[in-house]
Write a protein that binds this DNA or RNA. Structure first.
Length: 185
DNA sequence: CAATAGATCATCT
DNA sequence: GATGATCTATTGC
């Protein structure tokens, strides 16, 4: 399944969130028969970033971010939407990357994944996936064995109040369709 | 087409 | 008790 891709090693995630957020563009999120390519991410820089949940310290909700990278941080926003994040940084560096949009590759309808709350609903991701290992397992991130050329835009993050001028949002503006045919049939 | 309002609840103060 | 890393429908130009 998922030809042309491979699992992502944990070292990939154990870097600062800005680097991982950029490099996650073009990678593939898979679950059951569903797959989507990540085309929009945001970096949250832990204790040094007032916009990050982890900036207020270790709580029951944020604890997964204080552990090793490559695990899922899923939480509920606005009482109705779940958001999927990837833990990055590593122990002692509680960074994470919010997955904001996917380009459908398999089993997903067009327009279903252009938003952090929508993509979790489309893929059936809930708080039950809190702490799930994204390097291996049913909910998994995979990268292309052959690199994908992408044009990337960097902008401020959406919907936050603190550090609203930080350029920590990464968006694919070109190239996202380059590999879509691989999963088509 | 742009702006605004309402839904709805876990988490933290 | 207030708030929020959202989405959708509705209102107003």
């Amino acid at each position: 399944m998922w030809p042309g891709t491979e699992p992502i090693p944990r070292e990939f995630f154990e870097r600062t969130a800005d680097l991982v957020a950029r490099d996650l563009l073009g990678t593939v999120l898979v679950k059951d028969g569903l797959a989507g390519m990540i085309v929009e991410t945001e970096a949250y820089l832990g204790l040094t970033d007032a916009a990050a949940h982890a900036s207020r310290g270790l709580t029951k909700r944020t604890q997964v971010m204080f552990g090793p990278g490559g695990y899922a941080y899923v939480y509920l926003v606005y009482g109705m939407h779940e958001c999927l994040n990837v833990v990055t940084g590593g122990p002692g560096l509680p960074h994470c990357v919010l997955i904001r949009a996917l380009e459908p590759l398999a089993g997903l309808r067009a327009g279903c994944c252009n938003g952090p709350g929508k993509l979790t609903r489309a893929m059936g991701i809930t708080r039950e996936h809190y702490g799930a290992d994204l390097c291996a397992g049913p909910l998994q991130l995979r990268r292309w064995i052959e690199p994908v050329p992408l044009q990337i835009e960097v902008t401020p993050r959406i919907g936050i109040k603190h550090n609203a001028d930080w350029l920590m949002r990464f968006v694919v503006t070109r190239g996202q369709h380059a590999r879509a045919g691989r999963f088509a049939g």
